[in-house]
Simulated assay, not measured.
Amino acid sequence: MTITEYFELLISDYTLRTITLGTAVLGAICGMLGSFAVLRKESLLGDAISHAALPGIAIAFLITGAKDTNVLLLGALVSGLVGTFWIRGMTTKTHLKSDTALGLVLSLFFGFGMLLLTFIQKQPNANQAGLDKYLFGQAATLVEKDVLLMAIVTGICLFVLLLFWKEFKILLFDSEYAKTLGFNTKFIDVLITFFIVLAIVLGLQTVGVVLMSAMLLAPAAAARQWTNKLSVMVFLAAIFGAFSGVFGTAISASQNNLSTGPVIVLVATVFVVFSFVFSPGRGILFKAIRRSKNRSDLKLQKTLQFMFGISKTHENIEHPHSIRILNNFQGFTKKSLKEMEDKEWITLDKQEWAMTEKGFIQAQNLYTQQAPYD
């Protein structure tokens, strides 16, 4: 099946429609909440939470003995929240740095989860088969009720974001100022963290424990390159996440033996790479263009200043001078002379140059601007 055929079947085929809607909604909510994780410099928190959710899935299965998705995700939510508050506790109550706490919780919970999964696999109960799908995700198992749950959670998340937008924004950029205004910063912090954990837990079935942090952070990292405004960043991250889900699902469905979760993450990575290279403000390409232009402008200004020093020794600034006078000056090139002539700073007559009134004023302004540093 080609990608074109996939989109033609999208409306009529129940399975394709369900998976596509599910991955799109998941990408949107991960993009929105990932923006807050990126701006709070808690990018590794998503990785730690997703791994911390694994033992919750295993324990929920051991208690109930059934693979009910809602029950397993509830166990993952509880386990993820416990891991999150362990990280918070270690960073606030001890001298450990956040990266150390993240590493400890990630390895401890993931190791415990793998131990429980190994134990479950050796049980005679046939229902345990396929429980390891939460490690790498299996989007094909999404059903309509899963998508509905994601949509409800996304709606609640969007409502809370709009309701506490001012508080979230102040806490992100100046938590101390938020305290002086009387905001309950601890409650706001817990609220943001809870929704981040919730988004991660929702994505475990689709993307899996291992790749979930990329799904959370990649759309936000891409959006950050295009704007300095929080609202625009959250919107762009949601768009990038949704498109990553849709196109990743389409590519996976159009090819044989391609897992949906990894393909979605790869598509999100393409958005990140494109943003890093081509975004006007922070993109590598435009930065290189600006640096080249700045170097060119600096060369022209240095040459103009050198000419100014020569011209001001004469009563007539339009007095012609030989171009050979500039031979020992490092900023001088024939190209720079031509550019200065185009700017009407100098006039050229064969092998002689003369400064114009406009060029003389420009050079004086350069000296005036440099005066405070002299």
Rank of each mutant, 00 (worst) to 15 (best):
L258I: 15
E315Y: 09
P219R: 04
L230K: 04
K299D: 12
V270I: 15
L211Q: 06
F286K: 10
S252W: 03
K229F: 12
I289E: 02
F306K: 15
Q305G: 12
Q255E: 12
T269Q: 09
L285Q: 02
A268F: 03
A214L: 03
H314W: 11
K293M: 10
A221E: 04
P280T: 01
S322L: 13
F247A: 04
A220L: 01
M307S: 05
G309W: 13
L285Y: 08
V272G: 05
I264R: 07
G248R: 08
D297R: 14
G261R: 08
A214E: 05
L216P: 04
R290M: 09
A238G: 03
G309C: 10
H319W: 10
G248N: 00
Q301S: 13
F276Y: 13
I239A: 00
F243M: 13
A253N: 13
G208Q: 03
T227W: 00
Q255S: 13
F240Q: 02
P320H: 08
F247E: 00
P320F: 05
L217W: 09
S244V: 01
S231V: 09
L211T: 06
S252V: 02
E318K: 13
V265M: 07
S213N: 13
H314M: 12
V232H: 14
S213L: 06
N228L: 07
R282Y: 04
L258G: 06
R282F: 01
I284C: 02
K312L: 14
L236T: 00
V273A: 14
S279T: 00
L298Q: 14
L266V: 14
I323K: 15
I239L: 02
G241K: 03
Q301K: 14
M307H: 09
A220D: 00
M307V: 05
S259D: 12
I239S: 01
A214M: 09
K287M: 11
V234Q: 00
T313N: 15
G248L: 02
V272A: 12
V272S: 06
M212F: 01
I310V: 14
A221L: 15
M212P: 04
M212R: 09
